[in-house]
Design a protein around this nucleic acid. Sequence first.
DNA 1: CTGAACTTTCAGAAACTTCTGAAAGCTCAA
DNA 2: TTGAGCTTTCAGAAGTTTCTGAAAGTTCAG
Lengths: 187, 187
Amino acid sequence: MEPTTENEAELLAADAIGDVIEHWGFRKALGRTWTMLYLHGDALPAAELGERLQMSAGAVSTTLTELQRWGVVRKVWIPGERRDFFEAETDFWKMISKVVHERERFLAVSVRERLGRAQAVLKRTGSGAASRARIERLGRLMNFATMAETVIESFLASRRVDFGEFGNLLALGRQVTAAAAGKGRKG
Amino acid sequence: MEPTTENEAELLAADAIGDVIEHWGFRKALGRTWTMLYLHGDALPAAELGERLQMSAGAVSTTLTELQRWGVVRKVWIPGERRDFFEAETDFWKMISKVVHERERFLAVSVRERLGRAQAVLKRTGSGAASRARIERLGRLMNFATMAETVIESFLASRRVDFGEFGNLLALGRQVTAAAAGKGRKG
DNA sequence: CTGAACTTTCAGAAACTTCTGAAAGCTCAA
DNA sequence: TTGAGCTTTCAGAAGTTTCTGAAAGTTCAG
């Protein structure tokens, strides 16, 4: 395929989104590939993605596998076609909530556990005012971690809201607010 | 300094927060160093941080410089001391809003500009239904980017609220909601 | 001034991530 | 059952980030 102006425009957009995605800690290739599929609309075979994005077959394969693991790209069956075709998930909100959820859950557990262990050690061995103050600060850190987790979780819980219209942001605001405030009072 | 149980506990916590920070796209050393300072409470000299965290003088220096640039660690003057001492910012909310703001602003501008350029190219050269559909999808992507930016911005705008108490989350919710809805109606 | 104390900078080392291209592994039509 | 077509895997290459340790720079007491 010779380069066309349309392809240039797609690459421009794909690279821009690629940078955003990279900025948030993923591989640039993930953002580029999703964007190319999203803009194209129709499903594309892996080889064509490789051509359009100048990626090797290997890179395309691992990237598509990862995008599917995140649930933001789907394999589609095209009758009469031997090759696999891929299409982008187009519901931004669904994508974000999936990714954030997946991404935070593991870490949150591990962090809570480790901070708790540190606190136990300090409580067991520490004495004196300085030690008490340190335990207090660690406690505040743990509270903050819990609160951040709660804010993220309730943000995600609102995924049932349809985000097609801006107006629905009102519903999100209410949900985040209520969930966070409720948990906070308990903690 | 021989390793103590207290130091072990501090390291445990520092490494946990270090992982969170790394997860969000910063160097692990930034999170470890901030946490060590935060838990210690009193300001510490660079050399002691190096000992406690097992970092070279060079690494400590660049890490402290970067933490100061983010505004989450301060140099403090201790009378009669020749060395610089450093202490952690303890206001979590202040830290987050500073960091997120700084981090998003540049990228947001660049991305808007590039998506706009891509759209211009498509509008100029495209024709036919497929092309119109592509332009439409790019438009949706741009709208979404604007909305995400708005949500982040209004989240940041609420930094004036005191976050010491969970109850104040209510105020945040209201602010995010109002700002995002207002902007959305215009767009 | 001078030298001691301390900090910053920087070149090269080490560690880590991501990519390429080829080989191995599927799957299906004939 | 074979082989063509396609995908996945993987070893090594390339690229990137971060660290170390030493040299250069800065500051200040005497």
